[in-house]
Write a protein that binds this DNA or RNA. Structure first.
Lengths: 270, 270
DNA sequence: TTTAACATCTTGTCTGACAAATTCGGAGCA
DNA sequence: TGCTCCGAATTTGTCAGACAAGATGTTAAA
């Protein structure tokens, strides 16, 4: 019947939905534009799905898909029985593709992380609470424990660094570092698995961690920053010393259907 | 008839969908878990929507909503007539709420930006190409021009800093700084509009910018880092000196329908 | 072998219905 | 009057079935 609403229906607001990309995408874009143009202010209720469907000359399904996109984008929230509302605090999002990790992209990420971790260590030395200091100590002990148990200790290593970031008492540091951790997780796993076979490397790592911890414990901000900088420079060096191993492992993972031993998806975070 | 699939239907894979959050959310989560557990490898085609609906004991609508979420999350892509596929390079995303900016949250963001901008300046001094250097120079000239024209110069100021980040030749720096720029845009606008009325402030800013530019031009990495650090510390000082003004302006903006001119939903591409 | 038409499959959109939760107004009562 | 409680109306969430639009693979023809 109205399989051709684009010709028969007169939408009171805009031209008929043109052929092109996804219809629901167009609608989502137009809604987004309308919201950001201030047609509805923060926290205000949007028209009902039925009303929006009539306004744009489309079915409720498409309206729902469009609103679903905006909801995923953090621009609106919906409450069953009540309606959909413009979000009180719209969000921006930063996205990072996770390709098959190559040395180059890992190095670039580390380059960004270094100043962040250094600053986090500095702030942690100034601001850490006693309980946060305890947590850092425990995390460091966990690394030893894991390594002695024959594990790679990667998760524990990341937890150590995360505990420091938390002690900086600025949530943006943990947020950004967590964000890039998801990228680094796999690469670090490969490298450290390799490292863990070499005792000298592990001894270095332990000593460097200890230096950071000591500086944070005594509240020496500059020493903490220096120790962190040293640690991260050495980490990059260690990474570069095993490039062939890294690439081989990555290569090997691409072939088969990737049984992907990670299985840590829900592991450390959830 | 089967309005009660949660009791009558035996899903071959999991327990019946429990009462709780959104059904489509649960399904999206389980699909996401399955993908990251390697059930389908990168680029592989997912089961059809009908098949997934049967597997989870839900209707196609819910499957579609769930897949829509994953699509928005960059985890899958869909092609009409062909199917839905696991993304070749899955993405992780970092999200940041943009509330009514208060001094505290602005300071926290600046605290994170500082080490990043300092490092970017250092890298820019080492790596900038001649054309990148030209672009930084032009951006700096644009600030003067805008200020003399009576504008706030905020956009040009951000462009200057962005040009430096670009000259670091590491895309992660521009990505993260752009990300937080969207948060700071409004706050900076308010503050600088205020600053621009005070010539002393503008003279300071110009001098500090000049110092950064000179260091980058001569390739002195440490001097560039120092100059950037100084600039950002002073910027924070200037910000703190006008807290009452900032808060008043923010307060005033909450009333009307808040014509926010920035940012788009799915990104800057469309 | 190459090309063109066809059958089939899959996602996108439309329609209609009911379930579940919220909102609002009025009945009843103190 | 002011308050509580209950039911009707409203609105999003889910279900079901259908067709449109595009992709894929097969078959028939040249």
């Amino acid at each position: 019947m109205n399989q051709e609403p684009r010709t028969s229906r007169v939408s009171e607001n805009t031209e008929p939905p043109s052929r092109g990309p996804q219809l629901s995408e167009q609608v989502a874009q137009r809604l987004s534009d309308a919201i950001q143009a201030g047609e509805w202010s923060r926290g205000a209720r949007l028209p009902t799905e039925a009303a929006l469907g009539e306004r744009f000359g489309i079915s409720r399904s498409v309206v729902r898909e469009a609103i679903s996109m905006l909801r995923n984008g953090g621009l609106v929230t919906s409450r069953r029985g009540s309606g959909s509302f413009v979000a009180e605090a719209p969000t921006v999002s930063l996205r990072l593709a996770i390709p098959d990790p190559d040395l180059q992209s890992v190095v670039e990420v580390l380059e960004l992380r270094r100043p962040l971790e250094v600053e986090a260590a500095r702030l942690a030395a100034e601001r850490r609470t006693p309980s946060q200091l305890r947590r850092i100590r425990n995390a460091m002990a966990d690394i030893d424990e894991a390594v002695e148990a024959g594990l790679s200790g990667v998760d524990q290593d990341l937890a150590f660094h995360r505990a420091i970031a938390e002690a900086a008492n600025n949530s943006h540091f943990t947020a950004v570092l967590d964000f890039y951790n998801r990228f680094l997780h796999q690469a670090i796993r490969v490298t450290r698995t390799n490292e863990s076979l070499r005792d000298t490397f592990m001894q270095q790592v332990v000593a460097e961690h200890q230096a950071i911890l000591d500086a944070i414990a005594t509240g020496d901000a500059e020493a903490a920053a220096r120790a962190a900088a040293t640690h991260l420079e050495h980490a990059e060096t260690r990474l570069r010393q095993a490039p062939t191993d890294l690439l081989e492992r990555v290569e090997a993972q691409r072939g088969p259907a990737s049984v992907s031993s990670t299985e840590s998806t829900g592991g450390n975070s959830r």
